[in-house]
């Protein structure tokens, strides 16, 4: 059974300040299908994400949520349809994929920090080698983001020395150091103990307040209510329903959505 929790973040989130563009499209997925050999895992996905939108994807385990966001920065390959990210269509062209990935940050369930590098080196690796930013400048940026996720004092430690919540915040900071225009989160809090969930959600909320375009796969329905401007429900590889959080939670339309919500909210 899917694990769901409702961690309430003790502050009011200023949704009004989060500007959503009406013209600038960040991601567009058109009639996309994906198969794992014979298994039809994503079916007819259509999704348009405007710049500044904050989208939460929910759904039962195995419904294809991870697969969908992994397709968006092509950690997985789709077979039919189109995915356009920041105006670039994802094809087999390696160069373009690297370009797209530079602009799309990704945060994983299991952090995936580089264990052989210090926190600071984890943060500066990509800016130095991908963007060609001088080391001093990259380190300054890294410290800035470490402050932002509230762990500047950990800069010289190794990932193994940090708690799960701290590691996940480092992972978010690592993505931010590339100054991406879009952030993807794949269950960033589900490998964490409850008391650490909050500190990670805080960081994600503050990102949202800064107008970052975000797609989050998460079971944190409190977060979805407070921050998201759209909730998408997936089942069996398809988008079953989507709506703004208020309507989604109070007035679900589809039978499956109702069932899912009744199961997780009690």
């Amino acid at each position: 059974m899917t694990h769901v929790s409702e961690t309430n973040v003790e502050r009011t989130v200023d949704t009004a300040a989060m500007q959503v563009s009406t013209t600038d499209v960040a991601i567009e997925v058109i009639g996309m299908h994906k198969w794992y050999s014979d298994f039809h895992v994503l079916r007819d996905i259509n999704l348009k994400v405007m710049r500044g939108e904050r989208i939460v994807i929910a759904g039962p385990s195995g419904s294809g949520k991870s697969t969908l966001i992994r397709c968006i920065n092509r950690l997985e390959e789709h077979q039919e349809g189109q995915i356009v990210v920041n105006g670039t269509e994802l094809t087999a062209d390696l160069k373009r994929i690297d370009e797209v990935r530079r602009e799309v940050g990704m945060v994983f369930q299991h952090f995936n920090l580089f264990p052989h590098l210090t926190i600071l080196q984890n943060l500066t690796l990509a800016p130095i080698w991908v963007r060609g930013i001088p080391k001093a400048e990259a380190e300054a940026t890294a410290m800035h983001y470490l402050e932002r996720v509230k762990i500047p004092e950990q800069a010289q430690k190794f990932p193994g020395q940090l708690s799960g919540g701290q590691q996940q915040r480092v992972a978010i900071a690592r993505s931010l150091c590339m100054q991406p225009r879009i952030m993807l989160f794949d269950e960033p809090t589900s490998a964490l103990d409850p008391e650490m969930v909050k500190e990670v959600l805080e960081v994600m909320i503050s990102l949202a307040e800064d107008g970052m375009t975000m797609i989050c796969v998460t079971h944190e329905m409190g977060f979805a209510r407070q921050v998201a401007n759209r909730v998408i429900f997936m089942d069996q590889g398809q988008i079953i329903e989507q709506n703004d959080p208020e309507n989604f939670f109070s007035n679900p339309q589809h039978e499956r959505t109702k069932l899912f919500l009744s199961q997780i909210l009690h």
Partner: peptide, 29 residues
């Protein structure tokens, strides 16, 4: 782990850099 490659990929590191900076140092240990 495969996650290391994926993390490096999603940061936009090219294949050569991925091997040189992330995979080989860890494998050699």
């Amino acid at each position: 782990s495969k996650g290391q490659t994926e993390a490096a990929q999603s940061l936009g590191l090219k294949e050569g850099d991925r091997l040189r900076l992330v995979i080989i140092p860890q494998a050699m240990r």
